[in-house]
């Protein structure tokens, strides 16, 4: 049993490392299109998100529709740190690493605070509250104005003019226009390392005593309580780790684009649902599946650009087909048959 789990873990790490190696080789030999080069960091970002949410959905057993909101917090705190300290910290790498730490910590903090009241709920109720929370984050950031001049910091929630900056003052967060000029510090290597770290964390967490406690709560809360498991503590822990990973993804996202705005498109509930789609398609509780599904579903609409007007339509159809192929009972049966054939072929050796 233990051996199998270990093998499973190692396979996942090897797949990520192999993918990284292949990409690097293609990059070095100049065989990769600009489109794909541009997609490498988003692939890591969405993989991270999916891994984070999978911990929440698959192991904690709680449906969160607010992960885009936590990603948003990570993105904005990370980017805010980077633009404000751009002059102070010269080294790009050091600044980015600090931004990663700060973004992750802030997302975790908010995740923790939100989780205290929210985890009293479960199931659909929790889903709706997290959904609302994600929208609140997005809307608050859309009215937030932060600037700095020689007098110090100015904050407003009405308009940029209300900041009353002296001439020469800089507006860092400009309401709906968000943060512009975030340094372009994300790269594929850092992205892959973060994915590996996230996988390492979630695998070890779920494989530990803590993880088993979390899973026992998922399976039967009353039974778990009756054997003395501190339900609140473990729920909080699981949810916070999950949001922290989403925050890391946000920082990576923010440092890949020079403009960061909290639009419904990138941090709205549609994004939360998209992340959930990665998780469900890849298999609930299956981290490797999450990473693969996130990669495929992020690549797909871009690779379908050749279809121009029909692109999004075909994308939707493919999504339905993939979901059916992966999870419809008949499709599973069909796949098992194929696998059985494989095995038969092998046995005749």
């Amino acid at each position: 049993m233990k051996n199998k789990k270990l093998k499973n873990k190692i396979t996942t790490f090897l797949i990520v490392i192999a993918a990284y190696a292949i990409v690097e080789i293609l990059l070095l030999t100049g065989n990769m299109s600009s489109l794909l080069q541009g997609l490498l960091v988003p692939l890591c970002t969405y993989s991270l998100c999916a891994v984070g949410l999978n911990l929440c959905v698959g192991y904690l057993g709680e449906l969160s529709l607010g992960h885009a909101g936590f990603m948003c917090i990570g993105a904005f705190t990370g980017a805010f740190f980077s633009v404000t300290t751009a002059d102070v910290i010269q080294s790009d790498t050091v600044r980015f690493l600090l931004a990663l730490v700060i973004g992750t910590a802030c997302a975790a903090l908010f995740g923790f605070l939100i989780a205290i009241p929210v985890l009293r709920l479960n199931g659909d109720y929790l889903a709706i509250v997290t959904l609302a929370f994600g929208e609140i984050i997005k809307n608050v950031i859309n009215v937030l104005y932060v600037g700095k001049d020689s007098q110090g910091w100015h904050v407003s929630i009405n308009s940029q003019a209300e900041l009353g900056l002296e001439p020469g003052g800089v507006t860092y967060i400009n309401g709906a226009q968000g943060i512009t000029g975030t340094p372009h510090s994300s790269n594929f290597t850092i992205g892959v390392i973060l994915v590996l770290i996230a996988l390492f964390v979630v695998y070890n967490l779920t494989d530990s005593r803590t993880g088993r406690a979390i899973m026992s709560i998922r399976d039967n809360q009353i039974a778990a309580e009756s054997v003395g498991i501190n339900v609140k503590k473990y729920k909080l822990l699981g949810f916070t780790v999950s949001t922290a990973i989403a925050g890391t993804a946000g920082v990576l996202y923010a440092h890949n684009l020079s403009t960061l705005t909290a639009l419904p498109k990138n941090f709205g509930y549609n994004m939360s649902i998209m992340i959930l789609v990665f998780v469900v398609l890849g298999g609930i509780g299956n981290f490797r599946g999450s990473v693969i599904a996130a990669c495929i579903l992020t690549l797909l609409p871009e690779l379908l650009r050749g279809l121009s007007d029909y692109r999004m339509l075909i994308y939707a159809v493919v999504l339905i087909a993939m979901m059916l192929f992966n999870w419809a009972p008949d499709a599973i049966f069909f796949r098992e048959q194929i696998v059985a054939k494989f095995k038969k072929g092998g046995r005749e050796v």
Binding site: S33, G38, L39, P42, N256, L260, K265, N266, E302, R305
Partner: peptide, 20 residues
């Protein structure tokens, strides 16, 4: 002409695709 869905990230993808 490439679609960007009014999204910064998709827009960069569209740009890269046009570069190709």
């Amino acid at each position: 002409f490439e679609d960007d869905e009014h999204d910064a990230e998709k827009s960069v993808n569209a740009y890269n695709s046009l570069k190709d």
